[in-house]
Design a binder for these strands. Structure first.
Lengths: 231, 231
DNA sequence: CGCGCTTTTTGATATCCGTCAAGGCCGTGG
DNA sequence: CCACGGCCTTGACGGATATCAAAAAGCGCG
């Protein structure tokens, strides 16, 4: 079995299901790249020139208004696919939150390869459908939840996603984890201000639901309580 | 050219690109159905048993919290695809807003057919990617826009989408159109309350930006002004 | 250790929007 | 024609969250 250098992370990669020749061909058109926190890979409204697979690290997908308000519309973890295949422009910017390794493809090359490999397109479709589900459930949060419900939901989701992606030693949701987000970025995910985020974190700590060992570290002390708050 | 009875609406249908035999086969597994306003086709969190193509009419996709708060996470127009292929459960309910005609498929049948017809899967992928783009730009609205920006953005989007779908005689954005939404449903799209929606409509009318000939009718008087408000 | 910078927290105040309540509009049916 | 019921509008009020401001906490670095 030829290993897929471009995208393999456990068995969630888009190349799962391709045969050896196909994997070699995909390797041939991909190029590894590293990005550092704050560095952009893709710009909103720019021509969609490249797509990529995340190998390691966490990146944010954002949209902004002209007057500088920002909304984080998605978060990409290892094995996630980023960029806009089969489209002229990207609808979101992609910026690294941590040091990250990705495998980038020219969009044209990738589109052509995908069209010739239905199994890959199918994987891409499954992921896109799953991402759409996740995005829709986030709309519920943005439109209908209050600040404390938003924070509780966010912490539970982070705990699940970071565990899933292997950022914690054992499986299952992580009790303690390191946030890849600053307070401002948490606010940009939840549609809140940094002050409201800070106050809600403090409240959860005072109520004994979480511990905050350092700025980026979170420990979930009372998961049941947090789930009740998330609604 | 065999006509695709299941889904053809202009050239946006998912079966565009299939050959005659394929279209016949697709026709064979689909079944036409009508739904009336308020009637559900798909229930949130239920097993994903069917998918469908909208032939005529408008439907809403919603998610709800246990305590009854509702968020409309998408709107399906003619030629749109609804339901969750390749997944165990649906993440949203689908309910008709107007009288609608749809072509339903058993999800199993459709999944099998799609996997055997890469061209169809490709179309589905393109639509899903486009829907994800639209959904993400709606997250910006929910998280970061205020009530008047939300309403302005909503009216402009409605005007575009209804025109696109052929609900108005001429092409281009519709100057005047009939909302398929009640005030409560507009509120559920925008993450507002019915009272706030009503007040914003009244304000736009008083400012001479729109006319409201009847409860469901909207006429855009000052599109430029509306665009400025949308931000 | 102290200095300067950024990020976060905390406090005071303002404001937008939600909530509650009443009244108006309009289609439907007696 | 009037009465009814659903939907919409309007008003008064309060509260959650934004805004503005300043202090505190980290953190790198000399």
């Amino acid at each position: 079995m030829t290993s897929c250098e471009t995208c393999v992370v456990r068995n969630r990669a888009i190349c799962a299901g391709l045969d050896n020749n196909e994997i070699s061909a995909l390797n041939a058109i991909g190029r590894r790249r590293t990005v550092t926190p704050g560095e952009s890979l893709i710009w909103e409204d720019d021509d969609s020139l490249l797509v990529a697979n995340v190998i390691e690290g966490v990146l944010k997908l954002t949209t902004s208004t002209e007057d500088g308000r920002e909304q984080i519309v998605g978060v990409a973890y290892p094995s996630d696919f980023i960029g806009r295949p089969f489209g002229q422009t990207s609808s979101a910017s992609v910026v690294a939150l941590t040091d990250a390794r990705v495998c980038v493809f020219s969009r044209n090359d990738f589109d052509r390869f995908a069209r010739e490999h239905p199994e890959l397109e199918h994987k891409l479709l499954e992921r896109t459908l799953a991402e759409l589900d996740r995005t829709r459930s986030w709309m519920m949060l943005l439109g209908r939840k209050n600040a404390s419900e938003k924070i509780a939901t966010f912490l539970l989701e982070m705990s699940d996603r970071l565990a899933e992606v292997g950022c914690t030693p054992a499986f299952g949701p992580a009790k303690r984890f390191s946030l890849p987000f600053s307070r401002q970025q948490v606010a940009d995910v939840l549609g809140l201000t940094i002050e409201t985020v800070s106050r809600q974190f403090t409240k959860l700590k005072n109520d004994g639901v979480i511990e905050l060992p350092s700025r980026r570290e979170v420990e979930i002390v009372d998961r049941i309580g947090l789930q009740a708050l998330a609604g």
